[in-house]
Design a protein around this nucleic acid. Sequence first.
DNA 1: ATACTTGTTATATTCTTAGTATAACAGCAA
DNA 2: TTGCTGTTATACTAAGAATATAACAAGTAT
Lengths: 129, 129
Amino acid sequence: MVIRVDFNSDEALYIQLCNQIILGIASSNIQEGETLPSVRELADNIGINMHTVNKAYSILKQEGFLKLDRRKGAVISLDLDKVNAKLELYDVLSVALARAMCKNITREEMHRAVDEVCDDILYGNTLQE
Amino acid sequence: MVIRVDFNSDEALYIQLCNQIILGIASSNIQEGETLPSVRELADNIGINMHTVNKAYSILKQEGFLKLDRRKGAVISLDLDKVNAKLELYDVLSVALARAMCKNITREEMHRAVDEVCDDILYGNTLQE
DNA sequence: ATACTTGTTATATTCTTAGTATAACAGCAA
DNA sequence: TTGCTGTTATACTAAGAATATAACAAGTAT
C-alpha cells in the first residue's frame, strides 16, 4: 500500500498517516490480516521520523483499526465498535453540515455528496488511484 | 446568542468559537444582518483573551460568514461560494465516511445520520437547546 | 548462540501554534 | 472629548509536533 505525505499541509504528519491508512482500509487497498510496513521502514520510505509513524500506529491501534505485534508488526484488525463510531460520525457531521447549510447546500446535495464520496472510496471515480 | 467554550477540550478555543457561531447561523439562532458581541465583550463573557475571539472572527470573515465593520462590529453576512464549500464538504466527508465504512456503518445509516444531524441543527431534537 | 528485526520506552532538542498580556492606533458615534 | 469599534504590534508562556539518539524486550532467522 502506497502512503504519501504532504509536507506543506497544515495537517500534522501523524494525522495524515492515520487518514491515509483508514482510507486504504475502507477502499480495500489493504485488508484485514495484512501488515503495514514497520515503523522504521515506513519512516525511511517517506523520509520522516520513526516516532511520527509510531504515533500514528498507536492511535490507529487505540481506535481499533489495527493491532501491534512485536513479531509481525502492525496488522490490520478491525474492532467494530459501531456505537462509538456513530457518535464520532455525528460529531464530525454536525460541524461539516452546518457549514454546508450556511452556504445554501441543499440536503439533496449532501446526500449526493455522501454517495459520491463512498463510491469514490470504493471504486475510485475521480482523482485517487 | 449564547456562546460557550469547553476548556478541557483538545480543540482550540478559536476553533470552538468558529464552530459554535457557524452552528448558530445554520440553526437561525443568529441571522444575516445581526451582530455578534464585540471581541472584547465576548472575551470578557467567556473569560478568555480578546485576541482569541479576534482570531475566530477573522477566520469567519475570511471564510465568508461575516463582515467586520469598525463601527457596527461583527455582522453576519453570508458569502455563498458553493463551489468552494462543496470541495471542503467532500474533503471532510472522505475521511469521516472512510472511518465509518471501516466500522461497518452502512450507507443507509450514513444517509440517516445526515438527515438526523440536519434536523437536529434546524429543529433541535436531541441535546442542544 | 549470534545477528537482526519487531514494537516500546526514555530523554532531549527544535519549531510551531495557541493563548495570554499590554499597548497603542484609526474610525466612528453620542 | 469620551467611549466604543476592529486592527496591529510586540512579548511572553505553555503545549504540541517532529526530530534525534539511545536503549530494551521479545521474537525470527542464520
